[in-house]
């Protein structure tokens, strides 16, 4: 008889954070919604802008993963680190503060992607609402890591919270969230009654209204696995590029054959994930492009971490790229 094995603490901590705090790293909602600034998005409306707190997570992930490279994810030290939220109760500091310091610049960048995306959609004529007080994470990691019983309960809670916004369409900034709502929730008999669209799809619908972008750099497109393979969105990105007057190149593997950024491996195998990211950056850089564009928070974080200086390629989210066109034309 084999004895029952315990699951690695990192998995359990992510699970309990999502179930208890609606966020994998137990980040609080108010902080996650601080990007809104002057956009004045109502809490209810036809089109819900959904961030799921995913871009907001990234600046915390990067230093955490740096730590992981040196700390064995199966060790006690790692569990302690991941249990930051519990420290709140004991010594009164937030895990955000524990991990702060190093991240001011990244935090600003990733937070502002939410702002820029909402700004672009508003400029394109979409009336957005945003659930600043109670927006919940989609639960993708519960599903990915195998916590399916929790996932089913959690998915129902998410749908209930979204229902209160009265939105008929939910526009997801992260393809992972879109995949959850569109493909995975129904597999668990949770059927959202709203339409699910990605940011890319909404922009694509009004691509003729996008301002031209005068970017002289050679641009290469990196397709994210979820967008390309699960949601089948590849052509839309190319159409958008054409609409803004920017030519682009393709790496050796892309569209439905795209190479993963390594992001999903970060939690348990950070070293492997880093190498996979570096190799993808190499594939992108080998095209001779000086800028890689993508449309997924995890790809952005992974490829940014995997881009070495000697490769000399800028990793940018499509949101950041398109936003520049609007600012230049103000």
């Amino acid at each position: 008889m084999t004895t029952k094995k315990e699951i690695p603490p990192v998995l359990e901590i992510i699970r309990s954070n999502i179930m208890e705090y609606n966020n994998p790293l137990a980040l609080n909602c108010r902080q996650n919604s601080s990007w809104v600034r002057d956009l004045e998005l109502p809490a209810q409306g036809e089109i819900l802008f959904y961030t799921g707190g995913e871009y907001q997570l990234l600046p915390y992930l990067a230093p955490l993963l740096k730590t992981l490279t040196f700390i064995d994810p199966a060790s006690k030290a790692f569990s302690l680190l991941m249990e930051g939220r519990k420290l709140v109760k004991i010594i009164g500091i937030t895990p955000e503060k524990v991990l702060a310091g190093v991240l001011a610049q990244d935090k600003e960048r990733y937070n502002s992607i939410n702002y820029k995306a909402a700004y672009i959609l508003k400029k394109l004529g979409f009336d957005l609402c945003y659930d600043a007080d109670v927006e919940m994470y989609s639960g993708a990691l519960l599903y990915e890591l195998g916590f399916w019983q929790d996932f089913k309960l959690y998915a129902a809670r998410v749908v209930e919270v979204i229902r209160k916004t009265q939105a008929k369409t939910v526009v997801c900034l992260s393809p992972h969230a879109a995949e959850m709502f569109k493909v995975v929730y129904p597999q668990f008999n949770v059927f959202p009654e709203f339409n699910v669209k990605t940011f890319i799809e909404l922009v694509w619908e009004k691509r003729d209204n996008l301002p031209q972008i005068s970017d002289k750099s050679t641009v290469v497109i990196h397709d994210s696995c979820r967008l390309a393979r699960e949601l089948g969105i590849t052509k839309e990105i190319r159409d958008i590029m054409e609409s803004v007057g920017v030519s682009y190149v393709e790496p050796v593997r892309n569209k439905e054959w795209t190479t993963c950024c390594g992001g999903p491996g970060k939690m348990l195998f950070p070293e492997i994930a880093r190498i996979i990211a570096e190799r993808r950056v190499n594939e992108l850089a080998e095209t001779g492009a000086s800028k890689a564009l993508l449309a997924c928070p995890y790809c952005l974080s992974s490829l940014q971490a995997g881009s070495k200086q000697e490769r000399n390629i800028i990793i940018e989210d499509l949101v950041e790229f398109l936003y520049r066109g609007f600012i230049a034309n103000v």
């Binding site: 599903y143 195998g146 916590f147 696995c225 393979r229 795209t258 190479t259 993963c260 999903p264 195998f269």
Partner: peptide, 30 residues
Amino acid sequence: TCLRCGRCVERCPMKINVPDMVGRLRSEVV
């Protein structure tokens, strides 16, 4: 270890959905 990235399914002549089975087995493991 599986990234569940799904490129194996593109290659597989039998279109075996490995990411789906991996997800299910993870749920059984935990």
